[in-house]
Amino acid sequence: MTILLAESSGIGGLFTALGLNVQSLVLNTLAFLVIVAVLGKYVYPSLIKALDAKKDELEAAVRLEHEAKEALEKAGSKAEAVIAEARVAAGEILAATKEAATAQLDEARAKSEAQATRTINEAREQLARDVSDARKTLRTDTARLVAATTETILGEKLDGKHDAELIDRSLEIK
């Protein structure tokens, strides 16, 4: 490989060897300054404006998001408070309802117990009455039957007087 250097001599030899020359340096400098001036005047302002607008939009969006988040948090805490309040009210209503239901149940139970007791007592009384009536009827029927049997045996009609005489006679025989 061959490396070509520009002809060089004297103190400025190094710069010359590297190809540095004032005319080219000035030309490059001026050309670049023109590029910077043109881009800086006609292009960059538009780009910076667009970036700023985009940045503003982003900031606005972030601000809105922040506000929405705050509103959401507020609504959330409000909802929690409402839910807690509703829970308390529901609890109270439930307790009151339970209490009322228990009272009604107790009342109904007491009423039904009283009714049952009454019914049982009435039934017992009725039963006692019926038993008593049956006994009376039985006694009457038995007496009649005895009288009829006796009338049949004796062959005579029995009445109170006759009956008493028969009883006395049987007592005297004994």
């Binding site: 490989m1 061959t2 490396i3 070509l4 250097l5 520009a6 590297l18 190809g19 005319q23 080219s24």
Partner: peptide
């Protein structure tokens, strides 16, 4: 050149336009 790569450290002048050397 002659099958060997030649590396020139300075930019090569192609032509002149007035006093300006175009490399």
């Amino acid at each position: 050149i002659g099958g060997v790569p030649v590396v020139s450290l300075p930019a090569e002048k192609l032509f002149d336009i007035g006093p300006i050397h175009f490399t």
